[in-house]
Design a protein around this nucleic acid. Structure first.
Length: 460
RNA sequence: GGCCGGAUGGCAGAGUGGUCAUGCAGCGGACUGCAACUCCGUUAACGCCGGUUCGAUUCCGACUCCGGCCUCCA
């Protein structure tokens, strides 16, 4: 029995798909005007793991994640770069895919782009106007009429009146009500545009998701996810648009991951305190980033720092060390660890608890290595299977351990030469020389592990 | 001001009405030429004040502090 925390109700609920055995999930992707930062990585990894586990439970999952490739920020950035919006977005989409593959994500079933759904967007705006949920303002822009959607604010427990007290909403004369938001925006000189019944222009930020989600998954589907900062206004507005247009409940389960923080502040574009995925991968193996995300539950806030990455690296090394030079059984009977792992995951995808089960399994595996090789190889197979559900332990143990950080120090050839020399020195009982070599390697960030099979090394 | 979260051992991070999280660090031991890895043992926590209870870190209420959202942001 899978339990999912639903932002809409504020509670964990038993998950029940609309159609038996099938799940439709829409996740808000990125606006592609810049490289992905760690906050994006968290959202992408969280929903990747959620999708893996939903499939593991036997559901046929249709995972759709959009790409926003029309937007004010894209236009602005393209102008600054003196390039077209299309070349900018194509470049950023390619970069995003590259980052994501390095982080070990599986791609969604479908990644619709806003520009490919222009007709559907226009159709939806048209319907909203016909139903009285939208109007063309004096500026020519088309707005959503929040005052007639009685449930406006239900996702965020807000009332229209209360929101005015905040007084941070733009007062635009063209709008009937300050909370009304743009569905279709008139083009300005030199900007990309599409023809529409309301003149040349482009969609507002929220309507594209309503149009893409309902077209890809239907007017009523199971799960809608995204980052914490999308709850308001983006998802609130999506609900308003979609439910007004279709007359049906839009989504059953709203899921939001937690924020990534830096120095106790949210990492965000507007604060400028963000680290791109590329920044981090220049220093650490991508799986370290993934482990950091997995080591806490997806809804909790994560503190990002070199320290937290280092701790993630060390923990991951323990898992990989257990697999080093270990036979993997071709089959195994799932043990209690699998059961406990699955129970943890079924409780709102508690990856932190699931990972702790992996560590307990590893302890038993390490013990079995000297006592019962068959058991050890079976536990290793079980470990790999469970880790795969989190997208972990997909690298060769030696490769990971030698490349957990990116280092400009000794190359592998030089390291091997020194190890060979040390091995000879040890055979000769020349321990002074052997220790000297080890010290030299350690001071260059290389740790040695002697075993009966020989000496292996790890980048620290 | 409104609405959401959160406060757990030295750090990170789960969870539970009464026995163990887990990882790192610490301490004692085994293994090792010495280390590292690994194993065994071990120390140590539930913001503050009330209430419910035989018993609360866990449930309820107040308080304090921290974070997020209310404007573009995963």
């Amino acid at each position: 029995m899978l339990k999912v925390y639903n932002t809409l109700s504020g509670k964990k609920e038993i998950f029940k798909p609309i159609e038996e055995g099938k799940v439709g999930m829409y996740v808000c992707g990125n606006t592609v005007y810049d490289f992905c930062h760690i906050g994006h990585a968290r959202a992408m990894i969280s929903f990747d793991i959620i999708s893996r586990f939903i499939r593991h439970l036997g559901y046929e999952l249709n995972y759709v994640r959009n790409i926003t490739d029309v937007d004010d920020k894209i236009i602005k950035r393209a102008q600054e770069n003196n390039e077209t919006t299309q070349t900018l977005t194509e470049r950023m989409i390619a970069a995003q895919q590259e980052d994501e593959l390095r982080l070990g994500n599986k791609m969604p079933n479908r990644e619709p782009k806003a520009t490919e759904f222009m007709q559907e967007i226009i159709d939806m705006v048209q319907v909203l106007i016909e139903k009285g949920f939208a109007y063309q303002g004096t500026s020519g822009d088309v707005y959503y009429r929040t005052t007639v959607f009685s449930e406006y604010g239900k996702l965020n427990n807000r009332k229209l009146e209360d929101m005015l007290a905040g007084a941070r909403i733009d007062v635009e004369i063209a709008k009937e009500h300050p909370a009304d938001f743009v569905l279709w925006k008139q083009t300005k000189e030199g900007e990309v545009f599409w023809p529409s019944p309301w003149g040349n222009g482009r969609p507002g930020w929220h309507i594209e998701c309503s149009a893409m989600a309902t077209n890809c998954l239907g007017s009523h589907f199971d799960i809608h996810g995204g980052g914490p900062d999308l709850k308001f206004p983006h998802h609130e507005n999506e609900i308003a648009q979609s439910e007004a247009a279709t007359g049906k409940q839009y989504v059953n389960y709203w899921m939001h991951c937690g924020a990534v923080r830096v120095n106790n502040e949210k990492m965000s574009k507007s604060l400028g305190n963000f680290f791109t995925v590329r920044d981090v991968l220049a220093k650490f193996n991508p799986e370290v980033v993934r482990y950091l995300m997995v080591s806490s539950q997806y809804r909790s806030a994560i503190d990002y720092s070199d320290q937290s990455l280092l701790e993630a690296k060390v923990a991951l090394e323990r898992l990989y060390t257990a697999l080093r030079q270990q036979n993997i059984a071709s089959s195994y009977a799932p043990t209690n660890y699998t059961e406990r792992f699955e129970e943890a995951m079924k409780d709102d995808f508690n990856t932190a608890l699931a990972v702790s089960v992996l560590f307990e399994l590893v302890r038993e595996l390490n013990k079995a290595k000297t006592e019962d090789q068959v058991k050890a190889s079976e536990l290793a197979a079980e470990l790999l299977f469970l880790a795969e559900l989190l997208g972990l332990l997909y690298q060769e143990p030696d490769y990971f351990l030698q490349n957990s950080t990116v280092s400009e120090g000794f190359d592998e050839v030089r390291i091997q030469e020194l190890i060979d020399e040390r091995t000879q020195a040890r055979k000769d009982k020349n321990f002074a020389r052997s220790d000297e070599i080890r010290d030299e390697l350690v001071s260059n960030g290389i740790e040695l592990l002697d075993s009966r099979e020989g000496t292996s090394w790890t980048r620290s």
